[in-house]
């Protein structure tokens, strides 16, 4: 049943019919009459670049039928600005859609546009928490959250961000998205603010946090990556971690190895030491043959980078 054709409010618009591409288009969708009609009116108002309440209503109609329609969302965002619409009301409307379409990208981008213009992050952390409760590793949600932190400078330890991350990691210490956000909270500001430098004590706190996480689960790669990242970022030698890594893997006690990542780190630490290429080789061989054999080619490559035995000891 035509909705727009018979509506006097749309009488002045000549719809633009769909051109689906020749007599036998590929990937052709048999659109419902309602969708096809609404789209033909959308093409018409977009061609005229119309910024109006009725165009806004049309976008809502289309979003209900196809929330994955990037064109409609972006057009809607432009209309909202042009007609100075109530953005708080828009955000409330958006929340109801977001909960139904968790993995829809457009919704997050739209949210970013709205919150940016509203100029306030109020309520966003609670909302994010409820979204992450459903899907704790959703890439769109985390990308949005990083934008939010930058936009509203939520860097401070008491901004609620760090506490939220600790809560998430407490629930699932293997959640790498949460680890990445933690890194972002600590180091993201360095690239953002001229002259800002992460304090040594903050780095120590982070090292302690990651070590505690490793003790909780030694085979969790996330905190090992975090530790390596911290050392690289602050230009500290890997050797600082020798005793720690040895708690989880010792070359002379292969039956007690509790973490392939510890062994991996030890291999790098031995490789950096002047006369320990031999031990590095042992660690890499243990990884290749027993503890992480799917990566045997990589461990072999690492071995090929070690200084050869013949090198004269200076």
């Amino acid at each position: 049943m035509p909705l727009y054709e018979t509506d006097p409010a749309w009488a002045d618009v000549t719809p633009i019919e769909l051109d689906d591409g020749g007599p036998s288009p590929l990937v052709a969708i048999a659109y419902s009459d309602d969708y096809a009609e609404a789209m033909s009116y959308l093409r018409a108002v977009m061609a005229a670049d119309e910024m109006s309440e009725r165009a806004l209503a049309l976008t809502e109609d289309l979003i209900q039928m196809n929330p994955a329609h990037y064109t409609v969302w972006l057009y809607r965002a432009r209309i909202l600005t042009a007609i100075s619409a109530d953005l708080s009301a828009e955000l409330t409307w958006l929340n109801s859609i977001a909960l139904r379409h968790l993995k829809n990208y457009q919704i997050w981008h739209h949210r970013q546009t709205l919150v940016d213009r509203l100029g306030s992050a109020d309520g966003e952390q609670a909302f994010l928490r409820s979204m992450l409760d459903q899907d704790a590793k959703n890439y769109h949600v985390w990308s949005y959250r990083q934008w939010l932190v930058r936009r509203f400078a939520l860097w401070a330890d008491d901004s609620g961000e760090l506490a939220s991350i600790e809560e998430l990691l407490n629930e699932d210490v293997l959640n790498n998205s949460a680890w990445n956000h933690r890194w972002f909270l600590v180091f993201g500001r360095e690239g953002q603010e001229e002259g800002y430098k992460v304090l040594d004590e903050t780095v120590e706190r982070e090292l302690a946090f990651a070590k505690a996480a490793v003790r909780k689960e030694p085979q969790n790669q996330s905190p090992w990556n975090y530790i390596r990242g911290l050392l690289r970022q602050t230009k500290r030698p890997l050797a600082e971690m020798k005793d720690f890594a040895s708690e989880f893997a010792a070359l002379d006690r292969p039956d007690e190895v509790r973490s392939s990542h510890a062994l991996d780190l030890l291999a790098d630490i031995f490789a950096d030491e002047e006369s320990n290429a031999g031990q590095a080789k042992v660690a890499l061989a243990m990884l290749a043959t027993k503890f992480d054999p799917i990566r045997a080619s990589y461990w072999q490559y690492r071995k090929s980078l070690l200084p050869s035995k013949e090198a004269p000891a200076a």
Binding site: V27, Y31, S32, N66, P67
Partner: peptide, 24 residues
């Protein structure tokens, strides 16, 4: 088949048709 016709409920793919062309 992926290059062929789809019923109306596939409207959610309406903006992804180029991808279906390329993948297929």
């Amino acid at each position: 088949d992926a290059l062929g016709d789809y019923p109306g409920k596939f409207v959610l793919m309406d903006a992804s048709r180029p991808w279906l062309l390329y993948w297929s």
